[in-house]
């Protein structure tokens, strides 16, 4: 059987979901029999070399670079999976969605207890090299079409494993009650 190709990325996330993927322990040996990785932090490949079968997205979209990467993933992946709460609902970063962006930036760079008085020129970083921050943190499915969602913070290794196996072998995925959790 020809190996399926997997790509992964972390947008506005903490890499916890990638850590959870590595938590499959010795099953990683079975995994590399089934798949090979293209663009992914797992193998440190930065660019897509071909169209891939499965894309795993961790994290929501908080800046324009996240949106760019997500759209690229949608274009390159036959199946795109949102992995974890951040990809599904924005995650803890989305707590800022209830506060106007200017207020957030002012608090972070000008008025917060750890910066007050230290930022004499009142600079809020806006170099053109930096990706522009979005007004809100967006769940991935509000930007592009997402085929499957794996909840959890992070989703357990067993859940990610079950999902990958089911996608690779074209089987029905097992989602036992104990594995599908939002925390």
């Amino acid at each position: 059987m020809e190996k399926k190709v997997v790509a992964t990325s972390s947008l506005a996330g903490c890499f916890g979901c990638h850590m959870s993927l590595l938590d499959i322990d010795e099953r990683i040996l079975e995994l590399i029999e089934l798949v090979e990785f293209d663009k992914s932090p797992v193998n440190d490949v930065k660019k897509f070399s071909r169209r891939v079968d499965i894309g795993l997205i961790e994290g929501g979209c908080c800046n324009e670079e996240n949106v760019h990467v997500l759209k690229e993933f949608r274009a390159q992946c036959k199946v795109l999976v949102s992995v974890g709460e951040c990809a599904i609902m924005g995650g803890l970063q989305a707590i800022r969605n209830t506060i106007p962006l200017k207020e957030c930036l002012d608090e972070a760079y000008l008025n917060g207890p750890s910066v007050k008085g230290c930022n004499e020129e009142s600079i809020i970083p806006n170099d053109e090299e930096l990706p522009v921050i979005l007004n809100k943190v967006y769940p991935c499915h509000e930007i592009v079409k997402i085929d499957y969602h794996l909840p959890g913070c992070p989703p357990s290794a067993d859940l990610i494993w079950n999902a990958l196996r089911a996608l690779v072998l074209d089987e029905k995925m097992e989602m036992p009650y104990e594995l599908v959790k939002y925390d």
Partner: peptide, 25 residues
Amino acid sequence: HFCPSCEKSGNCELQALAYRFNITV
């Protein structure tokens, strides 16, 4: 409802119902 940072997570009936109804998104 930010379940990962909620003190009631695991004991929350809304969350439990969402689990029961297999809500992933």
